[in-house]
């Protein structure tokens, strides 16, 4: 069973996108932990560790991704976790490249079909367990 967490950091309260992805992953047969809006990097990292999820998805629409994502990645590392992380939101291509260099496995724009995301998330987990 694949266990995935969908987190929504930052100050904006728009979580429609995050919820759509969470439901799509559930419908693809995964167990999805949704933690609600306005989560701090510390809350997100600790929850991912405590829930021992196989993969962590971060949804950011506020534009603060270059600040928030590296923070979360560092906290995860400090806590001894190497859970694969993907990011969804409105993210310029050059930022997406930088995030991937930092270790983010994939970045999804607003139009990405949820079925595609679900397929890929499953394959991330298979690879990280291999």
């Amino acid at each position: 069973m694949v266990k995935v967490m969908i987190a929504k950091p930052g100050l904006d309260g728009h979580d429609r996108g995050a919820k759509v992805v969470a439901r799509a992953l559930r419908d693809a047969g995964m167990e999805v932990i949704y933690t609600g809006i306005r989560q701090t990097p510390e809350q997100i990292a600790q929850t991912a560790v405590d829930e021992d999820v196989d993969v962590l998805g971060i949804s950011i629409l506020s534009g603060a991704h270059m600040k928030l994502v590296p923070k979360i990645l560092k906290l995860l590392k400090d806590k001894g976790s190497d859970v694969p992380v993907f990011v969804g939101g409105i993210i310029p291509r050059e930022d997406a490249e930088k995030l991937k260099e930092m270790g983010v496995i994939e970045v999804y724009g607003p139009g990405t079909p949820t079925l595609e995301i679900a397929e890929q998330v499953k394959s991330f987990v298979e690879h990280s367990n291999a």
Binding site: E31, T35, G36, Q43, T47
Partner: peptide, 15 residues
Amino acid sequence: GALLGDRVRMQSHAT
């Protein structure tokens, strides 16, 4: 599949 949402109400205690 499952959507596990109970935690949302308790996240202030996550850390």
